[in-house]
């Protein structure tokens, strides 16, 4: 569940400024979406994979775990392009759709690797407070930070409740399963609001005035990293144009 978040805290790029990682990962992502899929997808996917397995030091199994669920959507979502509807035969195989389907799958996979590159290197706790500088209201970034901090506690609560229910044969039949899942949800609802209320009381005792601002560690932006990123992105764009 939290594998990407765990990787974001333990990878060698953990201490890099989020803007550096955003420039590279989101730059690659943009290239994947904007450039022609062939050879754009191959180039972007290749660069993202090399960075993930090289400097970011992920194992292939970790990358696979991160991409396998979205890959199901990409695979299933490409199928309709292989089918044509209407005409003499209502539904038929459309051989001409193979090219667009492959191009779509390639582009989406390359973009997915760009997303994983950012997600696996940058903890949300580093990103959220900095969104304020991009014009997101403080109240919104603070609520997002609260959600981030609370959701792991709630997921742990659900896991604990689920384990206890399984121990009591709570998933034996469909009827008991529904009742158990509703119980998990009820426990989380009560737990989350109870925790929010206790946080509210604790903050009130400390003179809460409405601001939940946290200290953001100052990190210098590496201009060298950004320069290399610019060269890599320019190389990807040029190669895609020349080879395409």
């Amino acid at each position: 569940m939290h594998s990407l978040d765990a990787l974001a805290y333990t990878n060698p790029w953990r201490r890099r400024h989020p803007a550096e990682k955003a420039a590279l990962a989101l730059g690659l992502l943009s290239c994947a979406v904007v450039l022609p899929p062939w050879p754009g997808a191959l180039l972007v996917g290749g660069v993202a994979l090399v960075v993930l397995l090289g400097p970011v030091a992920l194992r292939p199994a970790q990358v696979w775990r991160a991409v396998r669920a979205p890959l199901v959507f990409i695979a299933v979502g490409s199928v309709p392009l292989l089918v044509a509807v209407g005409g003499a035969v209502l539904v038929r195989f459309e051989p001409a759709g193979a090219g667009p389907a492959l191009a779509l799958a390639g582009r989406a996979f390359a973009a997915l690797l760009g997303l994983v590159l950012f997600a696996a290197t940058t903890p949300l706790a580093d990103t959220l407070p900095r969104l304020e500088r991009l014009g997101v209201p403080a109240a919104v970034t603070e609520i997002a930070s609260l959600i981030y901090r609370l959701l792991f506690l709630l997921l742990d609560t659900i896991a604990g409740v689920r384990e206890a229910q399984a121990g009591r044969l709570g998933f034996r039949t469909w009827r008991t399963t529904y009742r158990s899942v509703a119980g998990q949800s009820g426990a989380v609802f009560v737990g989350s609001f109870d925790r929010a209320r206790r946080l509210e009381q604790g903050l009130a005792l400390r003179g809460y005035t409405g601001s939940l601002r946290v200290q953001v560690e100052a990190r210098p932006v590496s201009w060298r990293f950004l320069a290399v990123t610019a060269v890599v992105l320019a190389g990807v764009v040029t190669a895609a144009m020349v080879l395409g």
Partner: peptide, 17 residues
């Protein structure tokens, strides 16, 4: 703000059921 944080976390967790 804290209640909205709890509501958001609850919404996220709902999709994990």
């Amino acid at each position: 703000k804290l209640l909205l944080g709890a509501a958001g976390a609850f919404s996220f967790v709902l999709s994990a059921l």
